[in-house]
Amino acid sequence: MSSLPQVDAAELGARIAQALEHMCFIISDPVDSAELPDTDTHSKVSVGDEHPLWDLSVSASNGLLSEIACGLMGIEPSELNEDEVLPATVQELANIFSGIMIEMIGGEEHPYHPGIPELTPAAPPTSDAVAVVALDAMGDGLLVTLNERA
């Protein structure tokens, strides 16, 4: 068993859902990852201390990213440059969710910090993850997976 702090997926999911609601009034419900609506855009951020210890990956459907971006920036979907904004949004979600995860594992006392989020071509397989959060937001999907670094 890993010596790293364990992350409770249910609590992480609840905190992420709360963040989505606070940020942009998006209501989401936990679902089994196998039943998750398709996701389109993907990002990953490392979390660690002196060395990267985890990778936190975020995958979301473009409809959800569009809704989040419009909510945050106060613009209409018709004003959105999707090619620019959707990748930036999924990267910022990775940043925010890594902060939530770090807080959960005692980051106030221990100097865990996130890296710079990067785009990835696809979500990692959930079978390798130490925590999986799958949320359905009115038919749009959000998948967050946490993998320990080897």
Binding site: I96, G99, I100, E103, G107, E108, H110, H113
Partner: peptide
């Protein structure tokens, strides 16, 4: 305005002159 939660690092930044902090996601 950051996801940073580490008390020691935040204190250091406050000592350098930061006056307030908003944690992301902020209201």
């Amino acid at each position: 305005v950051s996801t940073e939660v580490n008390a020691q690092r935040l204190l250091r930044i406050a000592t350098l002159g930061a006056r307030a902090r908003l944690q992301k996601p902020f209201e």
